[in-house]
Design a protein around this nucleic acid. Sequence first.
DNA 1: ACCTTAGTTTATCAGATGATAAATAAAAAC
DNA 2: GTTTTTATTTATCATCTGATAAACTAAGGT
Lengths: 209, 209
Amino acid sequence: MNAKINNRRLSPEDREQQILEGAIRFFAEKGFSGQTRELALQLGITQPLLYRYFPTKRSLIERVFEEVYINKLDPAWSAALTDRSQSLHKRLCAFYCNYSEATYRNEWIRIYMFSALMEEPLNKHYIGLVEEQILMPICIELRDYCGLPTKDISPISQVELDHIWVMHGGLFYHAIRKHIYRSRVSTNFEEIVSRAVSTMLEGTKAAQL
Amino acid sequence: MNAKINNRRLSPEDREQQILEGAIRFFAEKGFSGQTRELALQLGITQPLLYRYFPTKRSLIERVFEEVYINKLDPAWSAALTDRSQSLHKRLCAFYCNYSEATYRNEWIRIYMFSALMEEPLNKHYIGLVEEQILMPICIELRDYCGLPTKDISPISQVELDHIWVMHGGLFYHAIRKHIYRSRVSTNFEEIVSRAVSTMLEGTKAAQL
DNA sequence: ACCTTAGTTTATCAGATGATAAATAAAAAC
DNA sequence: GTTTTTATTTATCATCTGATAAACTAAGGT
């Protein structure tokens, strides 16, 4: 990216990109009821120029969703979750460090929550992916870790899934506290992850769940 | 409450209460950018009538905050948390069942999240109460449970607090999934609480955190 | 240098939205 | 039964807001 873009008369590609990036920042802060005039002001352009690049406000919002959500779940991470040559603790820590770096970001978290409150279908779709590609694999590995029967013997139950959701949600909630509540939180997220993973693994085994 | 209120010409007290309750339902659903005309329509009254009872939209929103937030943390619950005549597991389960019944409700959760995204000061205040009246006591009890030094010897650290935040947030996240994401979740929340508490207690002890 | 192209701005519209004032009508007071 | 009071509605305002059209201007081609 250019350090200082001359904001006057950009190429269509650059302008569109600039608007999109500005819109992500803007809507993450104000929510999607934020006004196009204020967005334009923040971008240093006039409001009608937005409409040369995006036919409606809604279409801009949908590009924001695309930009923010697309390709945030790397299939390699789920693959690594099931690689039993590594300890499960190590795999889970590595996963949550990667995952959090991609998604526990100010703009991602806030836009995610705004869109969920608006009942954007995107949210349900994303939750489906998380359960399928992350939580289910973890449940299966946890069964193995605790010496419990495989999913072929008895399928993963809703309660097992929700049990893992507590850890997953607890870590996600750290990002909510940071970026939505804007609370002071531990800067050392890796330590929080390591503790949460250890606790979940040892606790689940010890409590014989 | 009357089962079916005659909506025509109510006493000022009844009308104000009706508007307030309707506003809670309405803003919980649409967020605070929801429009007064739509609220009035939903209440079966005309929009200017709102302004007889609340001078501005903002003042109505502030009444909604009051109504939703006030007196939701019963001091008796925190007191019960430190009653060592009961097992810590039992105390925590009892606490989270009480707490969730008061706060993990559709309107509470959604208004809470909308207000947090708007950076209402209320949110920061509430988080302070939670840390002080709920999480700190739990940290202290957990130290005792794990045979670790009391807070007089070494004060509760941010990492310890964040460790408990993972469980607390994980349970709260269950309500987010239910009321904000509107996902299908376990109906038996008590079981989820019991598992989360057991896992946290046994895991923290076993992992020697 | 001139002309053409196209990125940007100025001016403006139509409908939405918070809020107010006057008119109406139901209940209370007498 | 008439008058007074007041809860409610109708009508309306000013501003905001998404969107459009025309004017302007910087850059590239000739």
